[in-house]
């Protein structure tokens, strides 16, 4: 992953110099280990700030919404699928974009790494050839990246970009034998009461900061339902019913659109596995409509199409 950095800088520099794009959106290396910062540059001389490694787990598609310039943007598998979704949903135009495809071997789960070093403070992380090394006061440990992937990356079936203008490297091998819905089936097997309990337990630590919503490229409504004040749909206090209402509605707004990029889960300051809310909907979309979001610009998403001859009975 980190080996793409030089190539990315060169491409960005060229695109800006030749005025193919007005701005370039990528990442810069973070001031805190395992936290890179999304960055927009206009000046080709600043291309050297760009950085790519296994800690780019946000979703750059967030930063495309309603922009009007010509944009160069980095996209790995899931980010490219979100860009496709954005184009289909008229949030940005394909012709505005110059997509630099980044084959991806997954992002590091920063919480798992901290757990592995006993929550000690990590001062630095470096990666090389499928491993990474973390250092802190009095310790240095090397791990295999494959063992510390974000759970969405470990079960990812689209590591290579689906839409791009240029690739930074040869495609990586796709993971064929992964089962992205193992945890969903466990929940499906629960009784209704157990399910209620499971989801209530999941959000007990929620502080309603809305990072999961705001980190998600699908959440671009000009006014979110939780911010509506006339009428106000959801209470603002820490009442568990309101918190649950937020999480359930957020998830349902993502139905048939979510690419399981994992940004929502990555950004949560209290570590709630919020993908548990969206994954069942992804599974349903796949099983009921043979649909995975963002794979093609030529097909409308299942929830905005109605066909009288739909082969599913439940919709007639």
């Amino acid at each position: 992953m980190i080996e793409y950095t030089e190539k990315i800088r060169a491409i960005a520099k060229k695109l800006l110099e030749e005025k193919t794009v007005d701005v370039f959106i990528g990442y810069r290396k973070g001031t805190v280990p395992m936290m890179n910062e999304p960055l927009l540059i206009r000046d080709p001389a600043r291309a050297d700030l760009l950085h790519w490694d296994s800690n780019c787990g946000l979703n750059l598609c967030n930063y495309l919404t309603k922009r009007t310039e010509r944009i160069g943007v980095l996209a790995n598998g899931c980010n490219s699928r979100n860009i496709v979704t954005h184009i289909i949903e008229n949030q940005v135009k394909r012709e505005q974009l110059y997509i630099i495809g980044v084959p991806c071997t997954g992002m590091i789960d920063h919480r798992a790494v901290k757990r592995a070093v006993g929550q000690k403070e990590i001062a630095d992380i470096t990666e090389k050839d499928g491993s990474f090394t973390v250092k802190g006061k009095d310790f240095e440990e090397t791990f295999k990246k494959a063992d510390y992937l974000q759970t969405n990356c470990a079960a990812c079936r689209h590591r290579n970009p689906v839409e791009y203008d240029e690739m930074v490297g040869a495609p990586v091998e796709e993971q064929e034998a992964v089962d992205p819905y193992r945890d969903v089936r466990k929940i499906e097997a629960m009784s209704p009461d157990e399910k209620t309990g499971f989801f209530q337990q999941l959000i007990t630590n929620c502080i309603r900061c809305y990072a999961c919503r705001n980190g998600c490229p699908l959440c671009y409504c000009p006014t979110c339902f939780v911010d509506e004040s006339r009428p106000q749909w959801v209470g603002k206090s820490s009442d568990p019913t309101d918190t649950m209402t937020f999480h359930l509605l957020r998830a349902y707004h993502c139905a048939g659109r979510c690419t399981d990029c994992g940004a929502c889960e990555r950004v949560c300051p209290v570590g709630i596995p919020v993908r548990q809310f969206t994954k069942k909907l992804n599974k349903d979309a796949e099983e009921l409509f043979s649909w995975e979001a963002g794979l093609s610009l030529d097909q409308r998403p299942p929830l905005d199409v109605y066909r009288p001859d739909d082969y599913n009975d439940f919709i007639k």
Partner: peptide, 16 residues
């Protein structure tokens, strides 16, 4: 503008 670019306007900073 540059400081704010990456911000997703969540409440993590203020609530923590």
């Amino acid at each position: 503008e540059e400081v704010a670019f990456a911000c997703i306007n969540c409440g993590t900073c203020t609530f923590l």
